[in-house]
Design a protein around this nucleic acid. Structure first.
Lengths: 175, 175
DNA sequence: TGGTGCATGTAACCTGTTACATGATTCG
DNA sequence: CGAATCATGTAACAGGTTACATGCACCA
């Protein structure tokens, strides 16, 4: 359901072709909702069949430029206002933690330090992104920035938690 | 890949039938990795075919009790030590934030407050769980507790971030 | 003996991934 | 004219959801 919306949302910001959209997915949306080329083209056809977007122009090489319809805008609002039917978020990294009691202590501790390294790398990457983008005073930038801030806060929280857990593991081993 | 591991991990803690496992998924694992009955039974057969678990006993009503094999334990360690091939985490709630510039300001603000309410509810639920469980001094409890702590820290972070964002939205509207 | 719980399975559908496939245009 | 890039599509597979389907065993 959500890729559908991600595409709809980007097309709301600017119209474009599947190819254009694919590049916008790679740059600006990669951290939020990655999508493959294959999936995107399929979804655009479904969106068009459902009347949520329409072909506004046909260019060279069979290029189809899409734009959002009124029904599409309504669907976007409907989806944003109904967060309750999101699928559950599954985090393999937290599943690992849950199962660390099943493996040798050294494997468990090593995993937590790896987790901390990942969080550190993510934090740095997000901070660099924040500092390198030339943010404009428009709504789309404001909310991209807010989503990025979420990523930063999330990575920082993960890092703190992982450090706490490493200490707790060492503490426990010392008994 | 991960449900496979979740089942393997639970069976490592105690052997049991699909039905047993299903109940353990509902109680202890629901917050970490939800699974449906249908999926679980299919996965147990696949695990058995792959030699990662084996039927240790057959009881009444065709009950098959499974236990983990040596190959299964090795696979668990392998998976825990290879976090780099996890699929990307997709969060519909963050996607929403990213797209809030496409909708009316009131819809956007309302969503962020709803997000904050969700985080508050999650936080309360996790804290109650933490305080109601009789934690034992064993590894599986230690790491369940650590995973739960992750949930708590995560919910707290989400709440702080959402409050910050509401303030930022109001600030911005005032200009 | 009849209901509840134990116990397992299948089918249809949706989302996502990887790989394969094809062709038109532009530019150097 | 040839290479890079623009541009779209299909097929096969893996994981997850909902719904459907079946039957045995225990106990009141």
């Amino acid at each position: 359901m959500s890729l559908r919306i991600a595409a709809l949302g980007l097309l709301t910001q600017y119209p474009g072709s599947g190819y254009d959209l694919l590049k916008r997915f790679e740059q600006s949306m990669a951290n939020v909702w990655p999508a493959t080329q294959s999936q995107l083209y399929g979804e655009l056809n479904k969106l068009a069949n459902a009347g949520l977007i329409e072909v506004s122009d046909i260019g060279p090489r069979g290029r189809k430029e899409y734009r959002v319809t009124e029904a599409g805008r309504a669907e976007l609002v409907r989806w944003i206002s109904n967060p309750q039917d999101d699928p559950p978020v599954r985090r393999p990294d937290v599943l690992r933690v849950f199962l660390l009691g099943d493996v040798a202590p050294q494997v468990a501790r090593d995993y937590v330090t790896t987790f901390a390294e990942h969080a550190t790398a993510d934090l740095k990457r997000y901070e660099q992104l924040r500092d390198s983008v030339n943010w404009q005073d428009k709504d789309s930038d404001f909310y991209s920035r807010a989503a990025l801030e979420f990523g930063i806060q999330n990575a920082a929280m993960e890092l703190r938690w992982a450090h706490w857990l490493v200490s707790a593991i060492d503490e426990r081993a010392r008994r």
